[in-house]
Design a binder for these strands. Sequence first.
DNA 1: TTTATATATCGCAATATTACGATTAATATT
DNA 2: AATATTAATCGTAATATTGCGATATATAAA
Lengths: 108, 108
Amino acid sequence: MGITKTESYTTQTLHLADLFKALGHPARIAILQYISNQTSCICGDIVTELPLSQASISRHLQELKAVGLIKGEISGTSVCYCINPIVLPILIDFINQIHSPSNQTCCS
Amino acid sequence: MGITKTESYTTQTLHLADLFKALGHPARIAILQYISNQTSCICGDIVTELPLSQASISRHLQELKAVGLIKGEISGTSVCYCINPIVLPILIDFINQIHSPSNQTCCS
DNA sequence: TTTATATATCGCAATATTACGATTAATATT
DNA sequence: AATATTAATCGTAATATTGCGATATATAAA
C-alpha cells in the first residue's frame, strides 16, 4: 500500500484504521456475513460458499482473526470460526463520534 | 491491491467494502476525527494539522468524498469539507447485523 | 491584467494487497 | 502404518495504494 507514516498517528487511530482495513474487502465482508448467518459456528465450508481458493479464504480468515474480528477454534481437522463481538463497539463508537451533531449545521 | 473478483459479490457487499476501505487508513481516520471536532466546517488547514503533503491530503479527501463519507463546498479559493452523515447508518447496520445474538453461543 | 492563494491532478517510485498453485502440518480414518 | 481430510503457509505474478514534487486550475487581491 505504499509508504504509510505509521509513526505519525496515535495508536488508537492506527487501531481503528487496521480494523476498518480488515473490513475493506468484499471477500471479508462476505465471510463475516456468512458466519453471522449460521446459528452454529460453521467452519471451512466458507470455501465452498465463496468463489475463492482455499488458500485465499484462509488468508482472509487470518486477517480477520489478526485484528480480532473473528476467533477460531480447532475441532479435529477442521477449524470453527465465529464472530468475536468485543471489538465491534470500538467501530460503533468511532462512527458515532464522527456523527456528532456539531457537523450537521455546516455544508448546508 | 491485486486481483479482486469484483463480479462475484453483491453490490451491497461491494459498497460496504468500499466504505470500510476508505476508513482503512490512519490519515483518513485522522481527517474525519479532525473535521468532526470542528464546530464550523473548517477546510484546508487539515494540511497543517497532519504530517502529509498538500497533494496527499487532497487525495485522501477525494477518496473520502468519492464514497460519500464527506462532502465539500467551494467558498472562494478554499474548499470546506464536512462529514456527510447519510452513509454512516449503512456501516452501523452492518456491524449490528454481524453482532447478532446467534453467534454468541458458539466458540465458547 | 498581474500576482497571490488554495486545491486538484499528473507522473513516478516505493510498497502493500490479492489470488492461486503447490506444499506443509496436523488430526482422522482405514 | 498408510492414507485421507482439513487448514495454514510459501512463493510468485498481477495489481492497487501511498506519498510527494511538480504542475494545473480557479478564484481573490492588488
